[in-house]
């Protein structure tokens, strides 16, 4: 990277981020009715998701061989990952808003990276409603699935949530970068992020071949499906390799690197076109 010298250290960046988030929360809290209603509605949105899954299972006892508790484990882990990325990284999508409003320039005039500034300045604690809801579902699912819990399995659950968070975070940054090239088309990103969240609620084996291949590349399959297969002692009927369950951290790293490269090239493009 060209623009590293003179920039703040990681510790300094953390301080800047924390300060920005603090300021944001103080500002939001002045409109607390709205803040609380939004948080509740995030909770309700997630709650209705899981209600829909339970309703499906009131009509069938199994979905592609998965019980409701097993699907709930899948849902709990992937939704928690997504909710965390929604709280901490989805602010990247405000790039489109600022580009359209002409205020993105301001971010480039600071001695700090625009992504850090966006994630701090636009921080939306109200999205935490979904985190709470996901944790509740996950807690119930962990007690209901037929698994003899041991340390490796517990570690796998924690890892998959972290990996999922990083993958979804990478997808947020990646899709938000679209705005640098086509500010209007950015909403297509929703089909990757929110669509990705929706896909990972279900065992991927129910989808047709092309969609399964797509989510393996994108790489939503590593968010919770592959590790959950391992935790539940199941095999992918379509025969994906067993080591996929452990590939999460590497896949997450690759996602971050790709997202980072695309984001920076987006900023370069913005600076060279002045759009």
């Amino acid at each position: 990277m060209v623009e590293t010298h003179g920039g703040p250290t990681v510790a300094e960046q953390a301080v800047i981020w924390r300060r920005l988030v603090g300021a944001r929360i103080r500002a939001d809290w002045q409109y607390r009715t709205s803040f609380i209603t939004f948080m509740v509605s995030q909770f309700v949105a997630g709650f209705l998701d899981i209600v829909a899954i339970v309703i499906l299972f009131s009509n069938v006892d199994r979905l592609a061989g998965w019980s409701v508790a097993e699907v709930a484990l899948l849902y709990g882990t992937s939704n928690l990952s997504f909710a965390l990325s929604d709280v901490f990284v989805s602010e990247a999508e405000f790039a489109a808003h600022h580009i359209r409003a002409g205020s993105f320039d301001r971010f480039l005039l600071r001695p700090v990276g625009p992504l850090l500034l966006l994630c701090g300045q636009e921080f939306a604690l109200r999205r935490a409603g979904k985190v709470v809801q996901s944790v509740l579902v996950l807690a119930v699912a962990l007690t209901q699935v037929p698994v003899d819990w041991d340390l490796p399995k517990a570690a796998m659950v924690v890892t998959m949530v972290a990996v999922g968070f990083v993958i979804f975070g990478g997808l947020w940054v990646l899709t938000s970068s679209i705005a640098f090239w086509a500010v209007e088309a950015r909403e297509v990103a929703n089909s990757v992020t929110y669509g990705g969240n929706f896909v990972t609620h279900y065992p991927l084996e129910i989808f047709s071949g092309w969609l399964r291949r797509l989510v393996t590349v994108v790489p939503l399959a590593f968010v919770s499906y592959q590790p959950t297969l391992w935790v539940l002692g199941r095999r992918d009927p379509h025969g994906s390799p067993a080591w996929f369950a452990f590939a999460g951290p590497l896949v997450a790293l690759a996602t971050v690197l790709v997202a980072r490269a695309v984001w920076f090239s987006g900023i370069r493009h913005y600076r060279s076109t002045g759009s």
Partner: peptide, 22 residues
């Protein structure tokens, strides 16, 4: 050296706000 330069310049856009509104 955009970031390095940022430390040495100040910018005021008359119609844009850099202050925290609330």
């Amino acid at each position: 050296s955009r970031t390095e330069l940022a430390m040495r310049i100040g910018v005021v856009f008359g119609q844009r706000n850099q202050l925290w509104w609330d």
